[in-house]
Amino acid sequence: MSTELPESAVPPPTGADESSSAPSRRTFIATSTAVGGVVVAGGVFAGTVLADPEEASAAEKPPSSRVSLTVNGTRRTVTVDNRTSLLDLLREHFELTGSKKGCNAGACGACTVLIDGQRHNACLTLAVRLEDAEVTTVEGLADGDQLHPLQQAFIDQDAFQCGYCTPGQIVSGVGCIKEGHTNSPEEIREWMSGNICRCGCYVKIVRAVEQTAGRK
């Protein structure tokens, strides 16, 4: 059942997320603090940190749009700065930090989510474009306390070390299984190649996907 949340406004993305210059350690920490400390009820993210004074003036009244989408079964309506990626919307405004930001450029898969049932990179998806979309993140896979079979398989197969890539791997694996690209370990490897694992857990990740696809 879909629940409806009250509408909320989302201020411009933070400089560390969206400015052209690489985030300095300081802006990174400032942003992290804001994420940890200034999130208030209703999904409103206050106290935006602007890293770059040039961006500050440009961002004074940045164009924004209203968008209604469903995230893990909950209907949400928000007003977002047009620049906001789905990944930032999820992580910083909806407090769904399961989807990870690795490269922020489509090159690692850590941000993989399902949009209308298909796996996409949330970092390259502009939130304003998601009117009426159904988004599923790693947080939406389990059924109450019952883990999704692929989540369980990752534990059974010990398919991670640091775990940073894992949410993206699992969501991508769910998409891969649904697409039916699981007929051999080689096929799984190829169709899971959009998810990089710096810890090199590929062999076990393939086993976890195989286990869940029902091949053993």
Partner: peptide, 9 residues
């Protein structure tokens, strides 16, 4: 080309 995710988009 690219990855399964990117090819979906």
């Amino acid at each position: 080309s690219a990855s399964a995710q990117l090819r979906n988009m």
